[in-house]
Amino acid sequence: MRLSSLTDGIFKNNAIFKQMLGMCPTLAVTTSASNGVAMGLATTAVLMGSNFAVSLFSGFIPKNARIPCYIVIIACFVTVVDLYMNAYFHALHKALGLFIPLIVVNCIVLGRAEAFASRSPVADSVLDGLGTGIGFTIALTALAVCRELVGAGTVFGYAVAPSFYVPVILAVLPPGAFVFLGFMMAFTRFMSSKIKGGGH
C-alpha cells in the first residue's frame, strides 16, 4: 500500500484540471457550493466502491468481458448511492437530479477502474478511488464557490458580498460555467508553471 495512490489523484493527476475528465457534472451542478460538494462526495463514494469491486474481481473476469462487467459494477454502485441519497438526503438528491445516474458515464470512474484498479491490490485501489474523488470534489467545490460568489453573492448559502454588490447572474447560467472553468484551468496552469519555475 502506497501513500502516492492517495495523493496522485488529488494533485498530480487531478481529474478536472489535468486530465479533463468528468466535464459534464463539473459544468452542470456547480451553480452552488453545496451542490458541488454533494456531487463530489457522491462520485467519491462510487469511485471507492467500484475500484474496490473491480480490484477484487479482476482475476475472475476474462479479458474481453472487462468493459461490460466494469460498467455493470459501476452502474450498480451508482444506483446504490442514488437510492440512499434519495432516502436520506432528499433535498440534495432533488437538486442534483439527472446527474446522479449519469455518474455511470463519468469517464473518471471507468477510467480509474480500467487504468488502476484492474491491476492493483485492493487497498491501493480503494485509496486511489478516495484520492481521485477528493481531487474531483476539491475542483468542483472551487468552481462552485467562485460561481456562487459572483452569481449570487453567497457562499454555501451565506451572504458574504457587501450589500451594494449586484450579483452577475450570468455566472450561474450555462455560459458562466464554461467561462469560469476556462479561466480556472488557465489559473492552475499559471500556478503550476510558477511552482515548477521556482524549483529550478
Binding site: F57, I61, P62, N64, A65, P68, C69, V72, I73, C76
Partner: peptide, 14 residues
C-alpha cells in the same frame, strides 16, 4: 461463452 458467463454472473450479483 466465457464472456457471456462473466457478464451474467456480475449482473446477477449486482
Amino acid at each position: 461463452l466465457k464472456i457471456i458467463l462473466a457478464v451474467t454472473a456480475v449482473s446477477a450479483i449486482c
